[in-house]
Amino acid sequence: MKLKISALATAVAVTISGMAYAQDLRIATEAAYPPFNEKNAAGEIVGFDVDIANALCAEMKRTCVIVAQDWDGIIPALVNNKYDAIVASMSITEERQKSIDFTSPYYSNYIALVAKNDSGFTMDDVTSKSIGAQRSTVASEWAEENAGSRGDVKLYDTQSAAYSDLESGRIDALVSDYLPAVDWLKANQGFGIVGDKIDINDKIGIGLRKGEDDLKAAFDKALAAIRENGTYLAISEKYFGVDIF
């Protein structure tokens, strides 16, 4: 009898864990950060992050559901179990690591200052002129640190709002991640990058709830696999023409 019960318990446990395993993996992205994640005309979420997420899910043999979530609330909603992972070009920072875990990095990010070509804006102007950035980003941290305390830093809820204020002339320059800036500059003549891209030793990882060590190991293993088999390179070249790992 005892044996039966424990066998039953094992069977139940196996079924439950099997169910949990078969359950869809919910992945959040911002869907407002082209070309990494954005909504296309049809309303589908697409981009580098989405392709990477799908490649990782295929590698892990799990079904994934990609959901869109505003940047400001993307960490709290992960912690509250609204989804299981964030694949949204999120920088691995100490502050974030206090609330969530990260997988190994899946690419490296640089930031850059963008200004009107004829504005004569230089790096030295950061302390005296108005600069914009998206709130809660490494770019905004850089802006606040370099503009000095109480410097004229305008913070936006989305990157596109910052770009539109740069175009209208409300801000003299903006700080943004490098690759999206290059992408934006393709479509916007008359603007350019001030100086060179800025290396802030910024690594991008997948955000997970603390303590989800199995999921973290699975992601890391899948990431190593797609690096190995060329899937990653194909996606990176599709968007940027180079390997951005």
Binding site: D72, I75, R135, S136, S140
Partner: peptide, 10 residues
């Protein structure tokens, strides 16, 4: 909101 984005402390 800016302070929150720096500290993630609710």
């Amino acid at each position: 909101r800016t302070v929150f984005s720096r500290s993630y402390n609710l």
